[in-house]
Simulated scan of single mutants.
Amino acid sequence: MANAQALLAITALGDPTRRQIFEHLAHGPSPVGELASTMAVTRPAVSQHLRVLKEAGLVTETAQGTRRIYRLDRRGISAVHAWLDERWAEALNATGSTLEQDF
Rank of each mutant, 00 (worst) to 15 (best):
L8E: 11
L8H: 10
L8S: 14
L8Q: 10
L8G: 07
A9K: 09
A9E: 08
I10A: 08
I10H: 04
T11C: 12
A12M: 05
A12W: 01
L13Y: 06
D15M: 02
D15L: 02
D15S: 03
D15I: 01
D15N: 12
D15Q: 04
P16H: 07
P16C: 01
R19F: 10
Q20W: 06
I21L: 06
I21D: 01
I21K: 01
F22S: 05
F22P: 06
E23F: 12
E23T: 14
E23S: 14
E23M: 13
H24R: 14
L25Q: 07
L25S: 07
L25D: 09
H27K: 11
G28A: 01
G28V: 04
G28P: 02
G28I: 04
G28F: 02
G28Y: 02
P29E: 14
S30V: 01
S30M: 09
P31D: 13
P31M: 03
V32R: 11
V32T: 15
V32M: 11
E34I: 06
E34N: 11
E34M: 09
E34D: 11
L35M: 05
L35C: 01
A36D: 04
A36L: 00
T38K: 15
T38L: 14
T38R: 15
M39H: 01
M39W: 00
A40Y: 04
A40S: 11
A40E: 14
A40C: 04
A40M: 09
V41W: 00
V41E: 08
V41A: 04
V41Y: 05
V41P: 05
T42H: 04
T42N: 02
R43H: 08
R43V: 09
P44V: 02
P44M: 02
A45Y: 12
A45M: 13
A45L: 12
A45Q: 15
V46W: 06
S47W: 12
Q48I: 12
H49Y: 08
H49K: 08
L50W: 00
L50C: 09
R51G: 06
V52N: 07
V52M: 08
K54G: 05
